[in-house]
Design a protein around this nucleic acid. Structure first.
Lengths: 212, 212
DNA sequence: ATTACCAACTTAACAGTGTTAAGTAAAATA
DNA sequence: TATTTTACTTAACACTGTTAAGTTGGTAAT
C-alpha cells in the first residue's frame, strides 16, 4: 500500500463495529482452505484489508486467535456428537453412532481437528483451563452412552470417566493417523474406523475385561 | 562473525569429514532439549559453528533433515518393540508388553514421537515411500503377536493387518493426547494406558467381535 | 612453477514470520 | 474551540527457510 492511495479502511469499506468478527471469519476461512501452517497474521490482515497490527487490538496474539478457533471447533463437534447421541437405539448402537460422528467430524474438518487436538502453540502458553469445559462436554456425551450400556447390562466398565477418555483417545488415534497420512494407503479408511469401533465395543462388552 | 576473525572452521576445529553427522547430532540434541518448533537451520548451524547454508550441502532442506530424524526414531522404536516382543509369555501378555513399550517410547521420547507421527512438514512434500518400510516393521511386530494369539486360540481376529493398524492407532491416540496435554490432568496416565490396552485385549478376545 | 580447477565453505540477500513501540487522523467529549 | 480518546497505521526488531553468488585452500595438469 503506497502512501497517497486510500486504503480500504480509509475508504470506509469496513463497518468498524465488527472487526473482531471479520478477523475470525478470515482466519477460519484461511485455515480451512490453506491449512493452519500458512495462517499468518499478515495474511489474515491482508484478506480483510487491515494492517496486521490491528489484529492485536482484538486478540492478544496468535495463540489467542488459535484458542478462539479451538473453542469454535469444540462447539461444532459438540453439536455433531449431541445429534448422533440422540438416536433411539441400544447402548452399543448409540456408542457406535457417537464414535462414527467423532471420526466423521475429524475427517471432514481436518484443519479444525488439528487446531483442536493436535497442534500445541509454540509459545509455552497452555490451553486456558476454563476452556477445557467444552472439551469435557464432548467426553460427557461418550460417558452417558456408557452409562446407558451399563444400565442395559451390556457394558462391563469399572471407571466410566476413564473409559470415556480411553474411547476418545482411541478415536483420536485413528483420526490423527489418517489425517497425517501415516496409515498404509492400501488400508481402507472405513474398515479401519469400523474395525476400531468394533474392538472397543467388544472390549467393553467382554465380561473378562480387567476393569481398573 | 566479522571478517578478520578466524571462524571455528577456519581454525580447524571441525574434522571436515563428518559435518553431516555433526548436523544430525546437533539437530537431535536441539530437538530433544527445546522441541522441534525451535529447531531452526540457523540454530543448528550456530551450535556446531558453521553457517546455516552449509547444512544444505548435506541435506536438501529442512524436510530432508526432518525425514532423517524420523528414520532414526523409527529405528529406535523398532529396537524397543522388538525387545518387548521377545518376552516368553502367552500371546496376550506379549501384546501387553509390546503395547506398553510403544507407549513408553512415546512418553519418554515425546519430541521424537512428534516428529515421527504427529508433525507433517509444511511444504507439501510427503514422507518418501521407501522410508515407510521401517514404519511397517513396527506394525509387523504387533501383527506377529496377534498371530501368536490366534494360534493359541486366544484372539478372534478377521484381518490381522487391519487389527494391527487399529491397535497402533489406538496406542497412538493415547500417546498423542498425553503429550499434547489434552487429557484431563486428574486422570492418571498409567490408568489410561493400561485401561486402553485392556479394552483392546478384551476386544480381540471377545468371541462376539464382529471381525471385518 | 604456474595455471586451472574443484571442493568446502562463506556472506548477502529475498521474502516471509510474530510482535512491539510510536505515530496519526478522526470522532467524541469537555 | 481545545482536549482527550478511539481506531487504526507505519516502522522496526529479531527471527525463519532458502537461493545465488562469492571466497577460500588444496589438488591436478600443463
Amino acid at each position: 500500500m503506497e502512501s497517497g492511495t486510500l486504503t480500504d479502511s480509509q475508504a470506509g469499506l469496513h463497518p468498524d463495529d465488527d472487526l473482531r468478527t471479520q478477523i475470525l471469519d478470515a482466519a477460519r476461512h484461511l485455515m480451512v482452505s490453506d491449512g493452519y501452517s500458512s495462517l499468518s497474521m499478515r495474511r489474515i490482515a491482508r484478506k480483510i484489508g487491515y494492517s496486521a497490527t490491528s489484529i492485536y487490538l482484538h486478540f492478544s496474539g496468535k495463540d489467542d486467535l488459535f484458542y478462539t478457533l479451538i473453542d469454535e471447533g469444540m462447539e461444532r463437534l459438540n453439536r455433531y456428537l449431541e445429534e448422533a447421541s440422540r438416536v433411539n437405539a441400544s447402548a452399543d448402537n448409540v456408542l457406535r453412532a457417537i464414535c462414527n460422528a467423532f471420526v466423521e467430524f475429524g475427517l471432514t474438518n481436518p484443519e479444525y481437528y488439528e487446531v483442536m487436538f493436535v497442534l500445541h502453540p509454540d509459545t509455552g502458553s497452555r490451553y486456558p483451563a476454563p476452556k477445557y469445559r467444552k472439551a469435557r462436554r464432548n467426553i460427557a456425551i461418550i460417558a452417558s452412552a456408557l452409562e446407558k450400556g451399563i444400565a442395559e447390562e451390556r457394558f462391563v466398565i469399572g471407571d466410566v470417566a476413564l473409559t470415556a477418555n480411553t474411547i476418545w483417545a482411541t478415536l483420536h488415534g485413528v483420526v490423527t493417523l489418517i489425517i497425517a497420512q501415516r496409515i498404509d494407503k492400501t488400508l481402507q479408511r472405513n474398515r479401519l474406523v469400523t474395525g476400531t469401533i468394533e474392538i472397543i465395543i467388544a472390549g467393553i462388552s467382554n465380561p473378562n475385561l480387567k476393569s481398573s
